[in-house]
Amino acid sequence: MNTDTIYPKVREIIADVLAFDVEEIQRDGSLVDDYSAESIDFLDLVYQLEREFKIKIPRGMIEQEARRGIGDEDFEEHGRLTEKGLEHLKEYLSEVPEDRFTPKMQVSLIPTLFTPETFCKIVLREMEGGGQAASD
């Protein structure tokens, strides 16, 4: 199974949660910048995905996984990504277009990078046995 298999359903759920027409949701769109997603929407989205795909998505999972294999001090400095942290994040969020990453970006702004494909990857990983098991 790959993310193509689950994308139609994930896209439908995202459209529903963010009150857009399905056709308006682009696979690499930024949920925050293009579809005005707010924190309540992410809570809602994660829950709807959990229900639909019968999985559990640990809260804060994306950021935790992005930090895996790198010490906190290497990942961020005063709440901003270090150069190494940025490279690590780019590798983890490989589906996000390169130009959306900015040097020294605030860690709190990481969710602005998330796209529908980001959530497809998360769902797939959890369906296949969980993020921890998949990457360990």
Binding site: D16, A19, E38, S39, I40, D41, D44
Partner: peptide, 10 residues
């Protein structure tokens, strides 16, 4: 008769 997808964000 009802409401759907009512969301409070702040």
């Amino acid at each position: 008769t009802g409401a759907q997808r009512v969301k409070m964000s702040r």
